[in-house]
Design a protein around this nucleic acid. Sequence first.
DNA 1: AATGAATGAGTGTTCATTCAT
DNA 2: AATGAATGAACACTCATTCAT
Lengths: 206, 206, 206, 206
Amino acid sequence: MKKRDAIETKAKILSVAEEIFSKVGFDGARVDDIAAEAGVNKALIYYYFKSKNELLKTLFTRLMEDAKRMLVNSLQSLPDVDGENGYRVLFDTYIRFVTHKRKIIKVAVAESLKEETPMSVVMELGGLFINAEIEILRKEYEKKGLHFPGNQQELLVMEFFTGLSPFLSYAMYKDQWEAQYGVNEEALRNYFYSAFRKTHLTAHLP
Amino acid sequence: MKKRDAIETKAKILSVAEEIFSKVGFDGARVDDIAAEAGVNKALIYYYFKSKNELLKTLFTRLMEDAKRMLVNSLQSLPDVDGENGYRVLFDTYIRFVTHKRKIIKVAVAESLKEETPMSVVMELGGLFINAEIEILRKEYEKKGLHFPGNQQELLVMEFFTGLSPFLSYAMYKDQWEAQYGVNEEALRNYFYSAFRKTHLTAHLP
Amino acid sequence: MKKRDAIETKAKILSVAEEIFSKVGFDGARVDDIAAEAGVNKALIYYYFKSKNELLKTLFTRLMEDAKRMLVNSLQSLPDVDGENGYRVLFDTYIRFVTHKRKIIKVAVAESLKEETPMSVVMELGGLFINAEIEILRKEYEKKGLHFPGNQQELLVMEFFTGLSPFLSYAMYKDQWEAQYGVNEEALRNYFYSAFRKTHLTAHLP
Amino acid sequence: MKKRDAIETKAKILSVAEEIFSKVGFDGARVDDIAAEAGVNKALIYYYFKSKNELLKTLFTRLMEDAKRMLVNSLQSLPDVDGENGYRVLFDTYIRFVTHKRKIIKVAVAESLKEETPMSVVMELGGLFINAEIEILRKEYEKKGLHFPGNQQELLVMEFFTGLSPFLSYAMYKDQWEAQYGVNEEALRNYFYSAFRKTHLTAHLP
DNA sequence: AATGAATGAGTGTTCATTCAT
DNA sequence: AATGAATGAACACTCATTCAT
């Protein structure tokens, strides 16, 4: 590659890294392959990034930032929508996010299962999501003049394991599921919405 | 190590492999480390197993067999229990299983995210779980003389993403969660049961 | 293998070793394969032979002994035959020998090309053959009352490079030649005799 | 070694590989030793060559190409020389070739004895040599207005086993012979020429 | 900004050989 | 005489990373 724009080059490297990490895992990925696929010299990757590990960290940072931005936007636009319809909008936002980000989410999940990271990306993401959800709930209760319920711990657990977890699974297995059960993307999304509404949403709507 | 029993040695190797795979991932694991930790010569691992990969396959096979056995047992002992209490028993069985097997489940999940395996272990496990659950539901409806509801595809999606997925997450993040939020095992299990009952169980009980 | 006769077992091991050495070379051969092919436990090979190398040395020793025996016999039976016919008999003896022994000869040649052995088996074999040939020639000249010719060095060279060498090549490439040029064993042998007679034999017959 | 010229480095690696293969055989050779002897990092060998085996194939390819070139040149320059003298020139060319290439020829012979290669390098070389020789003979006969003799198969056999084979043996055992019998290079060459002339050359000169 | 060349430290796997029974 | 288990020392090959230009 000759004289491409520096920013463009870095972006290309990162997107190829994301692609390859998600295909073969971080440990399974080879810097040679990333370079080849990105059409750049291997040493150039080290010119832009300190190490293979920094590629990953950069991608994770970007994931966290995008997640934050998405959640903040959701919170702000929440008052505009209402009731059932409001939840569908929120749901669509989440689904769009995890679908679009599913490559790096897969990597984040795989890495989060290792016993090294003091605080895994997925746990961080979980914290973010849980807080956002609780904030939304609080507002909803407020709006209706209700008292926000008690046991916080249980709520956290619920948000993580029955709220976030299905979305993560969606990101992780959407493609395999579609291939395995012969469903197209839209159908799967609708089934998933239906299931999610009947379970998680129903459970904590006031 | 001298002339240990062959079966014992193989078992030791496998359990250490499981431990290490779950700690650093399959690709991150070193056969040297497995050998050292198991207290055997590295070559002995290759005397019993064709390759590092076969260690993994053996562990996965065992996981699938154990899962099948557990599900079959659950189905058979189902009639003995009833209603809410019955579900708690079932839930406890599942929780015990994923807790006990969480090391290899973590590995299975991480590996299932790679784009190689035609049918990932997790998808297989998903199929098993879904079938068992549907069978249970069908019996429950029958018992009460009700008609088993319609849309199969949606049911499958629900079982996988809101039924199995939280359990997988429990296996994956139980330890991190306890450490992060300062909950002990029993409390987490109870919160999780409470959340799971309110969401998934409530949703498809007749 | 259970309670086979010791001598039989050793013989089986040696013959399999010869077979495998000739197929993949000494360095390419694995003791495991020899054991498997011979139907014996690998450790048993070390019970009978000090090392893989000793297998080779045993085979080489046997080759040298057989070669000596063959040459001595030839010398002794020489007076019985005469002239052209006598040479054909001698030729047939040689051809039979190198054909029958071609497996170990291949190994001997391959090993002889390495720069370790102070005196390669092939050079030893060469010495044997040269001496025998010169002895035969001397007798032939004597019989006819002729004076045995002069330059010894040149004679040695001739016996080795145009006398022995074609026979070695025959042992080495007989099978490949038959396959490559679609000749059967008998035809090749006859062509070879014809060629050898016209060249080497003609050259030093009185 | 720092930033040597790439071509030079590849050449160095190849020549060291040739040296070591010829000393201890292909299977006996260690890539570590090649690297050390060539003064390069082992990984650099794999930067230039796919595998140890490719080193060998590269050397064999070069041998075949050089042989072709040598034979073509010989054929072209043949008309310039004549009769006995012409053959001496041809002989010298061959001797120079096999002497100069004897290292890789030894390796080629040793490898050709294994039962894997569908068509061994030596058999290929044999084909080349045979064709060239027959071409030369045909021209010689033509020049003298003679009819080129009949049985082709026998001619092939003769060229291979009494024409090429002594040259191969010369390449293979020249050094050992000189050491063993205390002859110097020139003397051996002359004896060999004398022997070859009396046998093979005499036999098929018109 | 970009690259071809080079390297140190692994990494899974193999293999001749030995041990204990 | 025979064997399953065990081992040390390699071995071919890999890979993240750096150097020189």
